[in-house]
Simulated scan of single mutants.
Amino acid sequence: MWQGWPLERVLLLFVGLAFALIFVQVTMFHSRQNFRHWAMWVPVIETPIFALAAIVLAFYHAGWLRILFALFMWLGIVGGLYGGYLHTAGVGQRVGGYSQSQNFLVGPPIILPLLITAISALGLLALYWG
């Protein structure tokens, strides 16, 4: 089944599975915080849509889906950067702010939204490289 698959299709499938896993993690983290900020809903809503789009695109090569997927990935890049900003600000709002290294361990994970940015960029690379 995998023999003869171009790298683009393999990467799109990987991107889809990565977004599915990120969805599980971000949903657990944000529900634990009771969705205190409206922006916490953004990755919970967008990551399963991104996952589905990537997986379908890996198997069904349609021009309209490529355009939609590219739009989704650009939204993922922007949303991930905004999430990184919000998470960084959240660490600073904890008692002791940035001077307490413990806040980076127990506060909002700064890397997780940036992972959405990175996986979105990988999706764009897979889409346009080939």
Results as ranks from 00 to 15, higher is better:
1 M>V: 02
2 W>A: 05
4 G>F: 02
5 W>P: 03
5 W>L: 10
7 L>T: 13
7 L>E: 12
8 E>T: 08
8 E>S: 12
9 R>G: 00
9 R>Y: 05
9 R>N: 04
10 V>W: 10
10 V>R: 13
11 L>E: 00
13 L>V: 01
14 F>C: 07
15 V>G: 05
18 A>I: 01
20 A>S: 14
20 A>M: 13
21 L>W: 07
23 F>R: 01
24 V>S: 05
25 Q>A: 14
26 V>W: 03
27 T>I: 09
28 M>C: 07
29 F>G: 01
30 H>Q: 10
31 S>E: 09
33 Q>P: 00
35 F>L: 12
35 F>P: 03
36 R>I: 08
36 R>E: 06
37 H>V: 14
37 H>Q: 13
38 W>A: 11
40 M>V: 00
41 W>S: 12
41 W>G: 10
41 W>E: 02
42 V>L: 11
43 P>M: 01
43 P>T: 01
44 V>Y: 03
45 I>H: 02
47 T>K: 01
51 A>T: 05
52 L>G: 13
53 A>K: 03
56 V>N: 02
56 V>F: 06
58 A>Y: 04
59 F>Q: 09
60 Y>Q: 10
62 A>N: 13
63 G>Q: 11
64 W>S: 12
64 W>H: 12
64 W>K: 08
65 L>H: 03
65 L>W: 01
67 I>S: 13
68 L>F: 15
69 F>N: 09
70 A>D: 04
70 A>Q: 03
72 F>T: 03
72 F>W: 09
72 F>Q: 12
72 F>M: 14
73 M>F: 07
74 W>R: 05
75 L>A: 15
75 L>P: 02
76 G>Y: 00
77 I>T: 10
78 V>F: 09
78 V>L: 12
79 G>A: 09
80 G>E: 04
81 L>M: 14
82 Y>S: 10
82 Y>I: 15
83 G>N: 07
84 G>N: 06
84 G>K: 08
85 Y>K: 07
86 L>K: 08
87 H>P: 02
88 T>Q: 06
88 T>D: 00
89 A>F: 05
89 A>H: 11
90 G>L: 04
90 G>E: 10
90 G>F: 08
90 G>P: 09
90 G>H: 10
91 V>L: 08
92 G>L: 04
93 Q>A: 14
94 R>A: 05
95 V>S: 12
97 G>K: 11
100 Q>S: 13
100 Q>T: 07
101 S>H: 13
105 L>E: 15
105 L>M: 13
106 V>D: 11
107 G>F: 04
107 G>N: 04
108 P>S: 14
110 I>Y: 02
111 I>E: 14
112 L>F: 12
112 L>K: 05
113 P>R: 06
113 P>Y: 11
113 P>S: 08
114 L>W: 12
117 T>S: 14
117 T>F: 12
118 A>D: 07
119 I>Y: 01
119 I>F: 08
120 S>F: 04
120 S>G: 08
120 S>W: 06
121 A>H: 03
121 A>Y: 10
122 L>Y: 06
126 A>H: 07
126 A>V: 03
130 G>P: 15
130 G>L: 01
